[in-house]
Write a protein that binds this DNA or RNA. Structure first.
Length: 457
RNA sequence: GUGGUUGUAGCUCAGUAGGUUAGAGCAUCAGAUUGUGGUUCUGAGGGUCGCGGGUUCGAAUCCCGUCUUCCACCCCA
């Protein structure tokens, strides 16, 4: 064979069967988003690199797909200095990149259209994002995020509402989940408490791995990052903290009470839990002090959702960001949002067999094609069916009946209508039920009604 | 980016002491059944064994490189 056609690493094609299931997920998510008053927007697949760079940390910058400038992109490269490194060359030949998430483009959008939006602005956005990561299970280079964000409101009611939407969506999808919640201010308070407020990132990254590598290794990593033994000792009560969310908060009050930021974080967390109780949100929530989340821009609450019954990275994550729009010149606008990973949700549902049978909504009736005249006899009825909201088609070629029947069978079409010479002569149709195999002769003028009756029954 | 793993027909996979023409199941197509699918039977098409180089009289099989797959790390949806 010649060379096989292929698609880039970490990308996928979606067949009609897969799309039916994907749409089921998207439709469920959209329905809930709308129910809470969020409106859709879309932004371009590519953004200026100046919009994207520096928003996700060094690691994120590395994972950005960059788009080569058009035309003779080498002509503007400065030749002095001889050989350039990739880092030096890249900004000279590329000024656009594929979006890495939907939150940063959204912040850009808000700043750009600030005068046309009324705040608080609640939007949702369902589009693919790209990361030049190395693919593995549940990790793709192109995948869909379903973001909901509200900007222009500090209220913790928004956080509570996000958790409520998480609960609604995963209940509708029949996935058991745990919502892990933490607060960056609490983490900052902990860092200050052990006397290393400056090392917040190193500390959070290390304790993020607690349940994966254990206390000993976490402590080793902290030491490797230059955290003093005394500070690590002080951290141990935090790492070993037991109890439910409320009890943990109580313990933390004793430890962090003096720290202004930490106390604020505890207060926010308490209020959020209160709201969640008042709204009677029906989902397992858990204050998880080891939850850090990498994206640099979070400043308050942070969320992560994991499926209870499947080992898989988080299927949903987000948090509050106070300064994201200020990077684009619009300070003092706080936002909070959460992102559903449609592809991972798909993988979870697939491995748990959670997709309903009926998701493949396709053709309901097909007319077989016996020839030119016979097809002409069928066409008016085909049209009437469609006018009556019945998904219907006619086989376009007068192929062998065996082939046409097989087509109907494989496409899962439940009703087949046949009209050959004898049916035409008698002004009737033969209607076949593909599930039972039964078939009846029906007067032509009753065909539509009969099919509509079957469809309802 | 680091370490490991994988690649044979459209799909799932057999096939090593290197040795004639590389196999099976499923799928496809044709026929049995020229107005009837899902079961059955018969037959057919389809592979430069991921790609490139090397060792050898001879390579799907051994060596090197490269791409791809999957996994772990990093990070993350």
């Amino acid at each position: 064979m010649a060379q096989k056609p292929a698609i880039p690493k970490g990308t996928r094609d979606f067949s009609p069967e897969v799309m039916a299931r994907r749409d089921f997920i998207f439709d469920t998510i959209k329905t809930v988003f709308k129910r809470y008053g969020y409106q859709p927007i879309e932004t371009p697949a590519m953004e200026n690199l100046s919009t994207l760079l520096g928003k996700y940390g060094d690691e994120g910058d590395k994972l950005l797909f960059r788009i080569l400038n058009s035309g003779d992109f080498l002509s503007s490269v400065s030749q002095d200095g001889g050989n350039l490194t990739a880092e030096q060359l890249s900004p000279q030949i590329s000024d656009k990149g594929l979006r890495y998430d939907l939150t940063v483009p959204f912040a850009r959008f808000v700043v750009q259209y600030r005068n046309e939006l009324s705040f608080p602005f609640k939007r949702y956005q369902i589009q693919p994002v790209w990361r030049a990561d190395r693919p593995q299970k549940g990790r793709y280079r192109e995948f869909y995020q379903c973001d909901v964000d509200v900007v222009g409101s500090d209220s913790l009611l928004n956080e509570a509402e996000l958790v409520q939407m998480v609960a609604d969506i995963f209940r509708a999808l029949n996935i058991k989940v745990v919502v892990k919640i933490n607060n960056r201010k609490i983490l900052a308070g902990i860092a200050a408490y052990i006397g290393r407020a400056d090392a917040l990132v190193d500390i959070t990254v290390a304790i993020d791995k607690l349940d994966k590598i254990g206390v000993a290794q976490v402590n080793a990593e902290l030491a490797a990052k230059g955290i003093e033994a005394e500070a690590i000792d002080k951290l141990q009560p935090v790492l070993f903290m037991q109890g439910n969310s409320r009890e943990k908060l109580q313990t933390l009050r004793g430890l962090l009470g003096d720290n202004l930021l930490g106390a604020k974080g505890l207060e926010e967390m308490t209020k959020l839990l209160d709201y969640i109780d008042l709204l009677q949100v029906d989902v397992a929530t858990e204050l998880d002090l080891t939850l850090a989340r990498g994206l640099n821009y979070y400043t308050g609450a942070i969320f992560e959702v994991k499926a209870s019954d499947v080992p898989m990275g988080s299927i949903c994550g987000g948090g509050r960001y106070d300064d994201l729009t200020s990077i684009f010149g619009m300070p003092d606008v706080s936002g909070v949002g959460i992102s559903f990973g449609a592809d991972r949700i798909y993988d979870v549902m697939q491995s748990l067999n959670l997709f309903p049978e009926t998701t493949a909504e396709s053709t309901q009736v097909i007319f077989l094609n016996f020839g030119e005249k016979e097809a002409a006899y069928c066409l008016p009825y085909l049209n009437k069916l469609r006018k009556n909201a019945v998904n219907a088609e006619i086989f376009p070629d007068s192929a062998k009946l065996k082939k046409q029947m097989k087509y109907a069978d494989q496409k899962g079409i439940p009703l087949v209508v046949m009209a050959g010479e004898s049916e035409m002569a008698g002004q009737v149709f033969t209607l076949k039920n593909m599930q039972s195999g039964e078939q009846f002769v029906i007067p032509a003028d009753q065909l539509i009604d009969k099919i509509l009756t079957i469809k309802q029954g």
